[in-house]
Write a protein that binds this DNA or RNA. Sequence first.
DNA 1: CTAAGATTTCGAGATTTCTCGAAATATCGA
DNA 2: TCGATATTTCGAGAAATCTCGAAATCTTAG
Lengths: 119, 119
Amino acid sequence: MESETAVKALSALAQEHRLASFRMLVQAGETGMPAGAVAEALGIPNSSLSFHLAHLTHSGLVLQRRQGRSLIYTADYEAMNALVGYLMENCCGEAGCAPPAACAAEAPDERTPEERKRA
Amino acid sequence: MESETAVKALSALAQEHRLASFRMLVQAGETGMPAGAVAEALGIPNSSLSFHLAHLTHSGLVLQRRQGRSLIYTADYEAMNALVGYLMENCCGEAGCAPPAACAAEAPDERTPEERKRA
DNA sequence: CTAAGATTTCGAGATTTCTCGAAATATCGA
DNA sequence: TCGATATTTCGAGAAATCTCGAAATCTTAG
């Protein structure tokens, strides 16, 4: 992972609302959440949240897909694992620590067949 | 971990020089590095690096101890593990993913007995 | 106690970020 | 096609951040 990529990802997470959004998406699994639901859950204006979700998406930590009128956001677990791996790389020098965590989501996909085609 | 604590830690890491410094300290293990050595390795003015190291220290990700005229900085592995754990908390909802990584440094302590007293 | 070494604090300009209402865009149902 | 729903884009002011030379602080050696 490039240093610049990591800085972008960390910058994306270094903000109250974006961190809360990201954690919410991480816990939501592959199913994800529509923008409106996140905005409501966090109690912030849609336009503000949109700004933050775009930031997270551009950073590569979050993925977007359309489902009808809604845009569904999901956490990108690969990107998250890569970021954590980069942070802990060669941890403790020669000592060698536990390998970095890896989250591999496999939550049920509740999309309709029609929706699956678009993704 | 509090949300505010996490934002502080992530903000601290969301900057080119600070991220580079932190990774350098993570790899340096418990031995740590003096401020000057980090500044030289990164090729930035002492005053600039001092600003960044202070930022990292206040965020709780880095520890400082004095050794003679030098101030030695070390990564705080517990804080790092806590941050990663917070990010990945309840990852993937009910699916349940691999447990978060945990780095426990155990590098040789090369301080003199006299220095150990001060720490 | 005084000089030399290692770092930090101060100061001020340049740049970036956050916020949120209003207007614009995209999709769906009838 | 028209209206309703879901989100994003625009705009501009307020606030926070980065940079780095010069001066100040703290520590150790002689």
